[in-house]
């Protein structure tokens, strides 16, 4: 097991290296002069020269990459021009919000998704199944931003039930925080429930057709025992992959909900950084999101190996 984890970490480091090169190169493709892009056109030649050297634009690409990555590893991404702050400080403010919402949504969507998926598979072909699958299929297709706008319209504008925007931590003001998180959380969670439900259902159906389920039936086991002991453990293994993808995707995909409900998270930050062409901030955000996705990936693989006795590590 130890060897397996080490090997996965090694592979991930290679992947992250490629990602970092890619992120770095991306910026050098930006149209226009990076100094003007950063500070605007109206600067003196003197300021220009100072920044030119500061950014290391006189050195070859590979040296610039090395100096950037060596700083990045220590958490130093430089100054954010649009925020007038250290990039790290900006991130420290924003990232926890996104992670908080993502994890909440993640832990709500998993049990519900699996539950609905199993109910749907067991009742295959009956009315309940049709209702659940139709619902899941529709929810998978609803874009998050549309869902957010729809909820905003229904619950805030029409019904005046929930505040339309903002974010406070629960320890600052519990009631306000709860009311403010309901809608964003709902928007983040519905898609997850739907996709986990679909995956669970199809992998459950696949398992139910297997020979070993027939064996279990030939032993005269009760239906519930067959489903929850013999089928579920097998069926959930592919769902683990999906869960990993969801978690990685949640953190990188929160910008829609955040921007509709005006939540100061990483999603809105990235959008802002892109609109302001704030290079260090873009680099830091994308790299951070990739790192999170990779870590989640490793965890997924380890869980996978631990759960499935067929995988020898």
């Amino acid at each position: 097991m130890g060897r397996f984890i080490l090997k996965r970490i090694g592979q991930t480091l290679i992947v992250l290296f490629i990602v970092s090169v890619f992120i770095f190169l991306l910026v050098s493709f930006l149209p226009g002069d990076p100094v003007y892009a950063m500070l605007g056109g109206e600067i003196t030649q003197e300021t220009y020269d100072r920044w030119y050297l500061e950014l290391g634009l006189d050195k070859p690409l590979i040296l610039r990459y090395l100096s950037w990555i060596s700083k990045a590893v220590t958490g130093d991404f430089g100054m954010s021009a649009s925020q007038h702050k250290e990039v790290v400080a900006v991130l420290a403010e924003r990232v926890p919000v996104t992670i908080y919402l993502s994890l909440l949504s993640f832990f709500i969507s998993i049990p519900l998704g699996i539950l609905f998926g199993i109910i749907s598979a067991v009742n295959r072909g009956k009315l309940l199944d049709s209702v659940l699958t139709t619902f899941a299929n529709v929810c998978c297709c609803l874009p998050q931003f549309f869902l957010s706008v729809l909820f905003l319209y229904l619950f805030s504008i029409k019904l005046h039930l929930l505040p339309s925007f903002g974010f406070v931590w629960p320890w600052e003001d519990l009631q306000k925080s709860l009311l403010q998180t309901i809608m964003p959380l709902l928007c983040l969670t519905i898609g997850g429930i739907a996709s986990i439900c679909r995956q669970t259902r199809s992998s459950m159906l696949e398992v139910i057709g297997q020979d070993y389920i027939r064996t279990a039936k030939s032993k005269g086991l009760a239906q519930n025992r067959i489903i929850f002991v013999h089928a579920m453990k097998n069926a959930l293994i592919p769902v683990i992959t999906l869960m990993g993808l969801r978690l990685g995707g949640l953190i990188g995909g929160s910008m829609f909900v955040e921007s509709v409900f005006n939540i100061p998270g990483m999603g809105t930050l990235l959008v802002m950084a892109i609109q302001a062409q704030d290079i260090p901030l873009i680099q830091a955000c994308v790299l951070l999101i990739a790192v999170v996705a990779c870590v989640v990936n490793i965890i997924t693989d380890i869980v996978y190996a631990a759960v499935d006795p067929r995988i020898k590590v």
Binding site: V15, V19, I289, A293, C294
Partner: peptide
């Protein structure tokens, strides 16, 4: 590497 960055990002 491409897959490790969420597609929308």
């Amino acid at each position: 590497a491409i897959r490790s960055i969420p597609q929308i990002v």
